[in-house]
Simulated scan of single mutants.
Amino acid sequence: MSGHLYPAHTRIGLPKMSFHSAAAPLVNLAEAQGGHHESLNPAVTGGSAFVILLLLLWVTTRFNRDR
């Protein structure tokens, strides 16, 4: 007996998938494509995302003022 309460043909649900088995194909794809591009500077990309998020926060707070 495999330790399950019900036989395999009566169990309902999807097979369990670990994080490693789910992420491994994505890692392989990223490694095959190179993963890096000369024109993408992490500091510029992160700084731009930060500025955009601050702008969205400012716009949200302007619209959310109590009148």
Rank of each mutant, 00 (worst) to 15 (best):
P25K: 07
A49I: 12
L53E: 11
R62S: 09
S2L: 09
L29E: 14
H9A: 15
E38Q: 05
E31W: 02
L40S: 02
R65Q: 15
L26E: 10
A43W: 04
S18G: 10
E31M: 14
N41Y: 06
R65W: 08
S2Q: 09
R65V: 15
A30R: 12
L26W: 10
R67E: 13
A23W: 08
A32F: 04
L55M: 13
R62K: 12
S2N: 12
E31A: 08
S39E: 11
H20F: 13
H20L: 15
D66E: 11
N28H: 11
A43L: 09
P42F: 08
S48A: 06
Y6G: 00
S39R: 08
P42C: 03
H36V: 13
L54F: 06
E31N: 14
H37V: 07
I52V: 14
G46L: 08
G47S: 02
H9E: 15
V44C: 06
A22G: 00
L40M: 04
N41V: 02
S2H: 01
P7F: 01
P25V: 08
F19G: 07
M1N: 13
Q33Y: 08
T60Q: 09
I12W: 04
G13Q: 00
T10C: 10
G46M: 04
R65L: 15
R11Q: 14
A8M: 10
G35V: 03
D66P: 01
R65S: 07
L56R: 00
A23P: 01
G35C: 02
V51M: 06
P15E: 07
L53N: 13
F19N: 11
M1A: 15
V27H: 06
W58P: 04
A8I: 12
F19E: 15
F50K: 05
Q33T: 12
W58L: 14
H37D: 05
G35R: 00
P25R: 07
L53A: 14
G3N: 10
L26Y: 15
N41D: 09
A30V: 09
A24W: 12
S39N: 12
L55W: 10
A8N: 09
A24T: 13
F63Y: 11
G47K: 00
K16F: 10
T10E: 14
V59K: 09
Q33I: 12
V51D: 00
P25N: 08
H37F: 06
G47Q: 00
S48T: 12
A49N: 05
V44T: 11
L53D: 07
A32L: 07
E31V: 11
L57M: 12
R65A: 12
M1S: 15
S39I: 01
G46W: 03
M17G: 03
T10H: 09
A23D: 04
V44N: 05
S48K: 03
N28S: 14
T10R: 14
R67I: 13
F50G: 01
S21L: 09
L55I: 12
L5V: 14
V27W: 05
S48L: 05
I12C: 10
H20G: 06
R65P: 03
L57H: 01
N41P: 02
T10A: 15
L53H: 08
I52H: 03
L53W: 07
L56M: 12
Q33P: 02
N64L: 07
A22C: 06
L54A: 13
A32V: 04
P42A: 04
S18F: 01
H36E: 11
V59L: 13
G3L: 10
T10Y: 09
V27S: 03
L40K: 00
R62V: 04
